[in-house]
Amino acid sequence: MRVSYYPGCSLEGTAKSYDISVRHVCRSLDIQLEEVPTWACCGSSPALKMNRLLSTALSAHNLALAERQNLSDVVAPCPFCFRRLKSAQEEMARDPALRQKVEQTIESQVNGNLTIHNLLGFLTERVGMKAIGEKIRKPLTGLKLIPYYGCYVVKPPSVTCFDDPANPTSLDEILRAAGGEVLDWDFKSECCGAGLSLSKPEKVCELTGRLVRDAAWRGADAIVVVCQLCQANLDLRQREIGLTDKKEYQLPVIYFTELLGLAFGCASEQLGLDRHFVDPLAVLKRKGLA
């Protein structure tokens, strides 16, 4: 299978381990990722807040580039890129005037016929649990995992059209297929604070604090994420959260592709597991999984 791959800015930078592990997982599944050549920022933030046209144009620019690859599917691991690209394509289809303006701005035509996937949806819906199950070599036995979807990949349902916004289960399925013990909790798609990390850090602390505390209370070995903003928020602030409680939290926050890569048999060094604040390798080694 060949698909267009749109990593987005974060995966090039702070979320490099997401990008690395995605590529490994896809290679194992015989999915050829063709990175969109000369891709640029998708415009989801801060462009979206400042200038609607700019934001849509940025996405359109990338869509036009992807269309020239002649592949019908685009996969974007970052939920923000996923939503922005998808919304931009749909808005232009609904509003011909907007489309015309955007095409003028980017000096390029956009056909608007790509199928845009988030990575989690692509793996569960397109690749399928059976194919994933067949590649599992080293099940994550004994690893207690909290599945954290974050809000962006499942809401609003009219845009994302993916899983159940209040109680999603696709990540649970993948982790179970990988042999992990998936714990139930009520915060699967609660917000972590997203982009407020720099502007309203106390809010982020409050929101992520609740997530970390409940995950720890349930006895999780790790929190599994699909979004790099969630990853950053949860990973970076555990010391602060701990200070308030006079406790120490050391709950690793791992991308699901990193765990899936491990289960596929890739070496832990190759998956970027050494790029986290709260070290996941300690827990994984203790469980004999790395």
Binding site: W185, D186, F187, R210, R213, D214, W217
Partner: peptide, 8 residues
């Protein structure tokens, strides 16, 4: 909006 369990 929601009734949920937070740390039990």
């Amino acid at each position: 909006a929601k009734v949920f369990q937070d740390q039990g």
